[in-house]
Design a protein around this nucleic acid. Structure first.
Lengths: 215, 215, 215, 215
DNA sequence: AATGAATGAGATTTCATTCAT
DNA sequence: AATGAATGAAATCTCATTCAT
């Protein structure tokens, strides 16, 4: 899904003086429940009622209390997963020198990550796929995602400049890679039989051939 | 999105002896309105109220009158678009001999089609992305989509046997192609500045390198 | 259900010059369909849509055209069945001399009639059980039903005066009889295994003991 | 209507750990409002809107919040009334030794109960009369009613074995009794002038003659 | 902090009726 | 006479949010 996450945009409720341990714990608990529900039921079907039930809360009011609306909760889910992905992927990617190896590490790493945290990745894919520009409050969020992508596009461009990668439109390539990974995540979420790591290797091969310079 | 559509599963209201021209006309009008609304607002936000307003109807009851529920309308939308895509793509694909040329025609054709009928493709992508196996009545529909994909996978396999394409997992390849096209459709729907035909050519190049035999 | 029907309250639509053969035929056809649907689905579930479908009509508008609303249709159903019951029961009852024999003939006759025309009796029982005084236009109808009952009550009273029947409140007795018969009708409608003629004999015995003078 | 109620099938919302007093209070209030509305308007006309208005609620959503749909509310109404009837009738019936006296106590007791709680009995009669086997979730409910009836049938049978009652079909007798009582309830609901206690005595006399052994 | 209760909007569906053809 | 289309009301249910305790 993502090669890396840059910055956290989590916004604690600002009317409060500061987060207490309890509140932080509750927020995390709700986020965890939301991740499960979104992964299973999808973005739009993940109602506060289902999330509250999963979190063991007796009312949806508790969610509204801790989060400034649905968008705020979704933002927290995304940043949470991005933080996880960042920590998981960055060392695996930076362990390699060549851009080709880094690209492979990125693709395979994403699917390894999914194999370990299926709900987390499924949730973020669901959310990002359902964002609309019109949603006020989510626009800034789309920009963040776009910025993350831009970083990776820049890496593709650098690899092209060094001659390691051939000539292609790095934005189109990057989005094709992301779309392919997300598609595997989406399918695997509802088809437990799918071998995601094998699919990851196949995709890595595919995009290796598509990017690598022939010289 | 789709290389071709196989069969239409449109189901007229069966309590009638046959569809009248008038009814078909109204149905078509509602389907057209639904396509616009889905493309703009997304699958879940496309309420009967919005569709009725777009279709110039005074009440949502009219939609229930013409369609057997939301699923029935969505089915009609998908079969409608599939029919369109089939008619548009098949001649363009079959005009070519080699599998490589056919694959290119398929990818570029899908995005040319989108350039001409942006709402139609946006709608079908939205619908198919939001289907869940749990939706009763839509399951058979997912099967149709899967069957369409299988046909194309078989073509990839044939091209591998002839030696024109190299060795790769045809299912993973096919889904990567589809995911990449759908992603362009999704982005272009909310970013009018995106040059989809250029993206189509880029993707065709990309997957040409990924599939073509080196020999 | 009823020992006899006195007068028909059927009201043809008065804005028309007169009933044509076709209209009369259609009305009868709709009434027949309504009887079936009411018997199967119950009074409130017998929508115009279901009745039209059963009658082989393509739209509910046809029912509104022939009947001045739901109440009018129901009135026609009731008068139709009352006419049937009248023709069936009167000779069977009048074949007997004693009031006891007539009462027995009435009870057993009603259930014999049900055995032959299950839908007709089921329908009228359903309708009469669901009438509310508040329904405007049906009030006069309830009066008719009440008048029919009054005739039978008068017969009970006469039998008491002759000494054939003992002392009891004839209204309470009459309604208990009617309620018992209707109950058998209601149950038999959804339990095909019930032997209604046997139940009829049992009820006749029961009310014979309850009414007959001991002297 | 009922000689006794056997078991309560009330189902609190199960996602909760347990019912709070407040929730029980609101539920009870809604049930009370439902009883009034059903008694006045009938089963099918007792919409959530009317019930909410009667209960002083501003929206029907509140009813959906407290009950798992219409069936759940109706179930609660019936069990509530059955509980009331059970407490009222059992001591009155068990105060007597002979089966004849018990039968009389049952019949008169039901109508005394109606005289004190007219809406309660009217509501349960309305509901039970309008149940259809097809309603999923209510089937088990019909079974309960049937089981209650079976208990009473068994008592009739015992009285026959002891020689106190004469020979008759106990099921037909029991249902005739029930039907007669329910009929009085139905009529009295819309005719305030009817003397239900007198009717109860008449019915008790009637069925005493119908059941008692001549020896 | 947390809960149950309440709210009001919005969604789909069904219904009887009316209208134009 | 008949049909398909259209209408508007009403009904149930779900949802996110707010409130009082």
């Amino acid at each position: 899904m993502l090669m890396q996450a840059k910055n956290s945009t989590a916004k604690q409720k600002e009317r409060r003086t500061g987060p207490s341990f309890t509140e932080t714990g509750r927020r995390a608990q709700i986020v965890a429940a939301a991740i499960e529900v979104i992964a299973e039921a999808g973005y739009h079907r993940a109602s506060f009622a289902k999330i509250a039930e999963r979190a063991g809360l007796s009312s949806t009011g508790m969610i509204s209390y801790h989060f400034d609306g649905r968008d705020d909760l979704m933002r927290e889910v995304v940043t949470d997963v991005m933080r996880l992905a960042e920590g998981y992927l960055r060392p695996r990617i930076e362990a390699h020198e060549s851009y080709a190896a880094r690209l492979r590490a990125s693709i395979e790493g994403n699917l390894d990550l999914f194999a370990e945290y299926p709900n987390h990745l499924a949730a973020i894919v669901e959310i990002l796929a359902n964002l609309r520009g019109g949603d006020p409050g989510m626009v800034a969020f789309l920009d963040t995602t776009e910025a993350n992508l831009a970083v990776q596009v820049e890496q593709l461009r650098t690899a092209q400049r060094t001659g390691e990668f051939r000539d292609f439109d790095p934005w189109v390539m990057m989005r094709a890679i992301r779309a392919a990974i997300d598609d595997v995540v989406r399918r695997a979420t509802h088809d437990p039989g799918l071998d995601v790591r094998a699919a990851g290797r196949e995709l890595a091969d595919l995009f290796d051939r598509a990017t690598r310079s022939t010289s």
